[in-house]
Computed example of a mutant assay.
Amino acid sequence: MLCLGIESSCDETGLALVRDGKFIAEKLASQVDVHALFGGVVPEIASREHLRALPALFNELMSEQSLTADDLDVIAVARGPGLQGCLLMGLNFAKGLALSTGADLIGVNHLWAHLTAAGLEQELQFPSLGLLVSGGHTHIYLIKSTSEFVLLGRTLDDAAGEAFDKTAKLLNIPYPGGKIVDELGKLGTVDPKMFPTPYIKNDNLDFSFSGLKTAVSLYVQANTELRLPMMGIPDSETDDPEIVRRRNNMFASFNYTVANKLRVKVDRALQRNKGVKSLIVAGGVAANSVVRSVMSDVADKFSIPLVLPSLKFCTDNGAMIAYSGYLLAQDGYRHDFKLEAIPRGRVVPEDWTRISEK
């Protein structure tokens, strides 16, 4: 079974091929440079960039693999959650291909795809506990199978990835700044008391990062010298050494606080869900070095393996959509051409048609 995956939920245009569960190839067009000028993703621009990139990436991908559209058995597309205009670009492209080739169409939950992406490189075990940490979402799931995800906890306001990017922006570091916060934090010293860890003294599995964002904003207001004079990347060779040291300490402390918040809730979830066979951590923030280290400690505490996608499969990509689509298609799930895009803030429905058993 040859499955094409199409990802266009935000600012990455990704297409990839998976054959019988094995990754073959992918093409990815990033819009980071375009949106960095605005300090964040501009939905209208992102949609137009997807429209421009999709045909070219598809032709390059198929040509390099000596394939044609008629070779496709399944076309999987991210149908949500995401920016609606962006999702529609990928969805309409997928429907056009399916209509012209006769390939089966399957809409993929973008969030679930992140969590199953590790299956491209290692065996997934069920049931598992899944932590999704990205720019738009911070969710905990009980994953019973490749098509059964039970939401246990979610962010009530801002996501972890957004907190990283907004922290960088406060210091005049360009979007997306989360990776820079992680890298510079490695050079700093953690002060566990620098920032509070809000919304952990409760008994639920939900998250809140708005309080942490406020604490960082107040800290920067009180220490304006840490802010770069103009937008750019901190340079340890030209900046004042004391400023560099303090800024890196701030990043180290911020990394620690986010990871500690995640640790508390995941630990609580594992205590309440005995018998899970692994801890899966996915999404863009799963590439953060401190988060990976802390989650490894949590998994060790409960004597279960930590399952992490490789760094290239943590951020939005077509391979995760192709693999998730393959798993669903293998179990007999399909969509018709009434398939709708589901914007962020709405629950992605499980409205498949099942045509056969695995």
Rank of each mutant, 00 (worst) to 15 (best):
M1A: 13
L2S: 04
G5T: 05
E7C: 11
G14S: 07
L15R: 04
V18H: 02
D20E: 09
E26P: 04
L28D: 00
H35F: 02
L37M: 11
F38L: 13
G40M: 03
V41C: 06
I45D: 03
E49G: 02
L51A: 12
P55E: 02
M62F: 13
M62A: 15
S63N: 07
Q65F: 08
Q65E: 15
S66L: 12
T68I: 14
T68P: 07
D71N: 13
V77L: 04
P81V: 14
P81S: 06
L87C: 05
L88F: 13
L91V: 14
A94Q: 04
K95M: 03
K95Y: 08
A98G: 13
T101C: 08
N109G: 02
L111W: 12
A113N: 06
A118G: 01
E121Q: 11
Q122G: 00
L124Q: 08
S128R: 01
L132C: 09
S134T: 02
I143L: 10
S147H: 15
R154F: 15
A159Y: 01
A159M: 08
K166V: 01
K166A: 04
A168S: 13
K169F: 08
I173T: 03
I173Y: 09
P174E: 05
P176M: 06
V181G: 06
D182I: 13
L184V: 03
K186I: 05
T189Y: 14
V190P: 12
V190F: 12
P192T: 13
P192V: 14
M194D: 06
P198L: 10
N202F: 09
N204R: 08
D206M: 05
S210F: 08
T214M: 15
V216L: 14
L218T: 15
V220I: 15
A222W: 14
N223M: 11
T224N: 11
P234S: 10
S236C: 09
T238F: 12
D240E: 14
P241E: 05
V244C: 10
N248V: 01
N248T: 00
F251D: 00
Y256T: 01
A259H: 00
R263P: 03
V264G: 05
V264H: 15
D267T: 06
Q271V: 07
K277T: 07
S278Q: 08
G284S: 10
A286Q: 03
S289H: 10
S289I: 09
I304K: 03
P305E: 06
S310T: 00
F313D: 02
D316T: 08
A319V: 09
M320E: 01
I321A: 06
L328T: 04
A329W: 10
D331H: 15
Y333F: 15
R334Q: 12
R334L: 15
R334W: 12
G345F: 03
R346C: 07
P349L: 00
P349G: 05
D351S: 13
